[in-house]
Design a protein around this nucleic acid. Structure first.
Length: 302
DNA sequence: TAGGCCATCTGGTCCT
DNA sequence: AGGACCAGATGGCCTA
């Protein structure tokens, strides 16, 4: 019995770490695998762009998932130092053995059905709940891991402070827009479809003047190339990130702008019944508003 | 101390 | 039936 359950458990852990299936909604219903070189070109469905996580990409995380509370093998703690948000005071860690007992609780040792009493029904319900909690915990850990990976590929500031989830999504959106504009801009060329980006830029401002130079600058923190002067993307983001949390833009700076919600989830915003993307669209709909944002030309052309 | 952010629990819904 | 996904509730931690 334990063997069976552990097998299921290990399968879950592998799925979460991306070793066998893609960690996405697509992976659940339709499992496709692409060679890494084709991962971004195989389908018009963006979900299909998700390449399988390379084995070893984040061993500590896979390790963490294997040892996370609720899915942990008895007596094993998560790796020290990884995932700082790991709760040391996790309320109700569910042991693998408990999950196994849960599955087997309505069958006798020889596999026959056992008539459930009200007491065993309660116990079973509790254990089902515990199992569901453990699954939910693992799911959220997977989601957080995805956020960590996203944080690692977008340019960050020098702040030691980790970007919030909301800020991470906003940064990613801006960064993607900037990169796609670079790709569309005249003279832009792509060295490799997946990894590095190179574009023709001009000295000083963005006005064509003299001979164009092709340069790729590593960003300060992430190693992700960005074809602007070293810190200019970070400063551009810093200037233009409309972070209502103030983590990327100070409160005083925010106060100069139109009043916004001080909540990162957008609640109480004038357009709170719209999705974030709808709100963004509404906020940026006029050219006047766009020009007020001091965006570089590549963004303003959108 | 209030507010922001987060992890976790929980019940509901949908899908396989 | 079981699992994934979602959103609301709750409580802890951290910072201004």
């Amino acid at each position: 019995m334990d063997g069976l359950c552990l097998e299921g458990f290990n399968k879950d852990a592998k799925e979460m770490s991306g070793f066998e299936v893609q960690q996405s909604g697509l992976g659940r219903r339709e499992r496709r695998e692409y060679p890494p070189s084709l991962a971004l070109m195989d389908s018009s469905d963006p979900r299909a762009w998700l390449a399988p996580v390379q084995p070893g990409t984040c061993a500590p995380h896979a390790d963490y998932l294997l040892h996370s509370p609720g899915s942990s093998v008895e007596g094993v703690s998560p790796p020290a130092g990884h995932l700082s948000n790991f709760r040391k005071n996790s309320k109700s860690p569910v042991k693998v053995r408990e999950l196994c007992r849960l599955k087997g609780s309505l069958t006798t040792d020889d596999g026959r059905q056992r008539a459930p009493s009200s007491e065993t029904t309660n116990v079973v319900q509790k254990k089902r709940r515990s199992a569901a909690n453990a699954r939910e915990r693992r799911r959220m850990h997977g989601l957080n891991h995805a956020f960590d990976e996203l944080r690692s590929v977008i340019p960050a500031f020098d702040n030691e402070k980790k970007l919030s989830k909301y800020d991470t999504l906003q940064m990613a959106q801006i960064y993607i827009n900037a990169l796609s504009d670079l790709l569309e801009s005249p003279g832009a060329k792509v060295d490799s479809p997946n990894r590095s980006l190179s574009a023709t830029v001009y000295e000083g401002d963005n006005t064509p003047r003299g001979s164009p130079t092709t340069r790729v600058f590593p960003t300060q923190l992430t190693g992700m190339p960005f074809p602007y002067e070293d810190a200019s993307f970070a400063s551009f983001m810093e200037q233009n990130m409309q972070s209502p949390t103030g983590t990327l833009k100070s409160e005083s700076e925010n106060s100069k702008d139109t009043p916004r919600s001080n909540r990162s989830d957008g609640e109480f915003s004038p357009h709170s019944h719209f999705s974030d993307s709808d709100e963004t669209h509404l906020e940026l709909q006029s050219e006047d508003e766009l020009s007020e944002l001091k965006l570089p030309p590549c963004i303003l052309t959108r």
